[in-house]
Design a protein around this nucleic acid. Structure first.
Length: 195
DNA sequence: TTTAAGATGCCC
DNA sequence: GGCATCTTAAAC
């Protein structure tokens, strides 16, 4: 699979969230490749977005990476799960795109093993915590450039039919809770459930 | 040193 | 609806 060029990630956050749809998240393991087509994302616009970890330019240990170059991975722990974001541009602006769901394409059997629960194929990767487990993505990838092996974005085909909605799980974010910054492919059964 | 809270998911 | 169980910051 052809890896994405670093310049791709320079797009503004909200645009990048939509541009990422249709491309692939790939993890090359010693015993094979696991990958999924990105079909759901959320944009987090740093300073002016109350729902973002980097609201008001908060510099925390975990948010430091957001201020660096676009295309790096921002991984963090949510209860028992790891979530993965793509840092968006420009440098110095703490914007990120959360990957919320992918459609499994490679190594589906391996994903079942990694998930460890009896899951229907549509439930294998339909949530941010689920897809990281299915793709064996851990906190070790904090700061990893997503243009490099073994974990990278590969070129697919842009999604034509994009829908948007408020973001999931940010109801306490005041006005920002209603911003329609969640993007997903229309009618795709692998999209996560809204809560 | 202790506590609280969270961009979640599984099980009861 | 409870709870698991990790990271971080802020309280004590």
């Amino acid at each position: 699979m052809k890896r994405m060029d670093a310049s791709f990630f320079k797009a503004p956050c909200i645009e990048l969230a939509q541009l990422l749809l249709g491309h692939y998240l790939v993890h090359e393991l010693p015993d094979g490749r696991i990958a999924g087509r990105i079909i759901e994302t959320e944009a987090y616009q740093g300073p002016e977005d109350e729902a973002a970890h980097s609201y008001q330019n908060r510099r925390r240990k975990r948010t430091e990476i957001m201020f660096k170059e676009p295309g790096l991975a921002y991984t963090y722990q949510m209860h028992t799960h790891t979530l993965i974001n793509v840092v968006a541009g420009p440098i110095g602006t703490p914007h990120t795109v959360l990957i919320r769901a992918v459609e499994p394409t490679d190594g589906i059997e391996k994903m079942h093993l990694l998930r460890g629960v009896l899951a229907k194929e549509t439930e294998l990767t339909n949530g941010p915590g689920k897809l990281t487990k299915a793709l064996a993505i851990t906190m070790d990838y904090y700061g990893h450039p997503l243009t490099e092996r073994p974990l990278y974005i590969a070129i697919g085909k842009p999604v034509a039919d994009i829908e948007s909605s408020p973001r999931v799980g940010v109801r306490n974010a005041g006005e920002a809770a209603d911003y329609p910054w969640r993007f997903y492919e229309k009618d795709n059964p692998f999209v996560s459930k809204f809560r």
